[in-house]
């Protein structure tokens, strides 16, 4: 097992090295910074971006939008998930909403959001639109997965509804949510950045990406992509930690 993990890590490193090698080779062959920048110029742009006094502010604003949008999606998904379980009416009401959200092109929603909302809210709204259905379905699944025999036990012991929700449904929801948490956090971040590209809030990774594109500074775009990858990786670890907290003995 340990050997196979080691081998997987070796292959992963090898694959990354191949990609970087391919990038270096292609940028050398193409030899046009606007189309494919060199590794060197990308690193230079990366240093410039990081040195910028507003860099942390930009990252902070994008993360804050991501966090607020995600929390809003999470709270709404839990609330509506629980209500849908107890009320057939709300469940039926949610079915077309979810079908609509999953079948409509994301771009169409972003355009509508640009018309309806101010620039600060668009990225959060776009993240919400993508993440809410995932979280809502996970919440509903968590409730439906509750062991019927445990519920029967609770009923026979006359445990009141509040405690059943608090001690059985909510933990079951979070245990189920933990399996989609990492992917949902990352999808949310991607969508927030996409929203920023189009809505151009004052501070935001997406706004900067758009700016680099406008100046045809492709190395700047690549540098921002690297920054996004790093943030994504960090958020992935945050997701793993949250998952561990949820799955392990933290439910009292």
């Amino acid at each position: 097992m340990k050997n196979s993990i080691l081998k997987d890590k070796e292959f992963s490193l090898l694959s990354k090295l191949i990609l970087i090698g391919l990038w270096a080779f292609l940028s050398h062959v193409i030899d046009r910074e606007v189309i494919l920048p060199s590794i060197k110029s990308t690193i230079m742009s990366l240093i410039d971006i990081i040195k910028d006094p507003y860099f942390l502010n930009v990252i902070f604003h994008s993360l804050l939008r991501g966090l607020l949008g995600f929390l809003f999606s999470l709270v709404l998904a839990i609330g509506l998930g629980i209500l849908s379980f107890f009320s057939k009416f709300i469940y039926s009401l949610m079915v077309p909403v979810l079908n609509f959200l999953s079948s409509i092109p994301t771009m169409a929603i972003i355009i509508l959001a640009l018309i309806w909302l101010n620039h600060e809210l668009v990225p959060m709204f776009v993240g919400f639109i993508m993440v809410f259905p995932i979280l809502y379905e996970s919440v509903l699944k968590g409730i439906l997965n509750v062991d019927k025999k445990i519920m029967e036990m609770a009923k026979l012991y006359k445990v009141d509804r509040v405690n059943i929700v608090k001690d059985i449904y909510i933990p079951s929801i979070f245990i189920n949510l933990s399996s989609v948490l990492t992917s949902a956090i990352n999808i949310n971040l991607k969508m927030v950045i996409a929203g920023e590209v189009l809505s151009q809030p004052k501070f935001g990774i997406g706004s900067n990406l758009q700016m680099e594109k406008m100046y045809l500074n492709t190395s700047g775009v690549f540098a921002w992509i690297i920054i996004i990858l790093v943030i994504s990786k960090i958020l992935g670890y945050v997701g793993i930690v949250l998952r561990k907290i949820i799955k392990e003995e933290k439910w009292k």
Binding site: D147, I150, M153, A154, V159, N163, E249, K252
Partner: peptide, 18 residues
């Protein structure tokens, strides 16, 4: 019919709360 995410104490407390 013990609740997996609750320890022995909490499993017992669950039915006693009311």
């Amino acid at each position: 019919r013990l609740i997996e995410w609750k320890n022995v104490r909490d499993n017992m407390a669950f039915v006693l709360k009311k």
